[in-house]
Design a protein around this nucleic acid. Structure first.
Lengths: 165, 165
DNA sequence: TGCCGTCCCATGCTATCCCAAGAATGCCCA
DNA sequence: TGGGCATTCTTGGGATAGCATGGGACGGCA
């Protein structure tokens, strides 16, 4: 599955075209549907989410899980699969941002691609800055550090592996 | 996984290139992606963090842990993976410091690499000195000693291994 | 027939690769 | 034990290829 990292800000031309960052393109090239990305409006932010075919397959499968309640399933089906737009890139690696999606995210002349491992997001650059600033404040307020989180996660994993049994 | 120790100060040329300290390079050579390091802005300092592929794999895994709440996960995905830049070294063992990262850390003509075992940091040399001075003061004030820390840690490990059950 | 979307071509910039030399270190031999 | 030699590391500059971006032309749909 493709891995998306880093942040890139690219321009949107008059036709609504944007270059997919080269790094993302390389990741996408290795998936089962190279040249095609799927876009949908984020559930939680005024931004777009993007992923490759393989990720959607996984998502689709997890919808079959009995652990989900009907509400959750309904929500995903309506807001993700219902809004999903497959977009194919041209020879230069550009895609056309569908109008309604660009509007939803408030994207004008520039679009910020931010990698989130298995998916990525597309933001209006200033909106992204604001979002990051808000998040950073939380980091400070809660005094979060990376090593702390790794420790917390691995402690939990150890417990599940038998030490707690 | 690579181990990084000691401190090195190297020059940054006009193109933003820096030599990775030879010692670090030797460590990196043994990892699953030799020649590639990952850089991102530190959560807690005006400095850059660096690691190898293997460390990131561990980090990535810990994000899957159910012990983390959604906030924390979102934060890490935005601030670490969203800012993460894979950098590959040239034949001479140099990397290019991405502009936005160099700016974030205030790095100009010189960069200080400081090993932190599984990761390393890159500082603007003067900022590092100031940081170290501040830390040293804390050591004195809190009367911290190495043997104390080792004792404390091993006492905790013993408790978790059954003495407390 | 007019408009919209897609494809193709062109260009400036940036990053990557390649080649080269000075400096510092460690080793070997006298 | 001291000096000389060789190797490694750091640093510098030029050439090349890739990428982001812009505009125009062709074809399809309404």
């Amino acid at each position: 599955m493709a891995v998306f990292l880093s942040t890139y800000v690219n321009k949107v031309d008059r036709k609504g075209r944007v270059s997919i960052p080269a790094q993302f393109r390389q990741s996408l090239a290795k998936t089962s549907a190279p040249g095609t990305v799927y876009l949908w409006p984020s559930l939680n932010h005024q931004a777009l989410e993007g992923a490759d075919q393989d990720y959607l397959d996984v998502l689709s499968e997890s919808l079959e899980s009995p652990d989900l309640d009907a509400d959750e399933r309904d929500m995903i089906e309506t807001f993700i699969f219902g809004k999903l737009i497959p977009v194919s890139s041209d020879a230069e690696g550009r895609i056309v941002l569908p109008k309604e999606l660009a509007e939803f995210a408030g994207i004008g002349e520039e679009a910020a691609f931010i990698g989130r491992r298995k998916t990525f997001q597309i933001w209006e650059p200033d909106a992204l800055k604001a979002h990051e600033a808000a998040l950073r404040e939380q980091v400070v307020r809660k005094d979060i550090s990376l090593s702390q989180i790794v420790a917390k996660a691995s402690r939990g994993a150890a417990a599940r592996n038998g030490e707690g049994a």
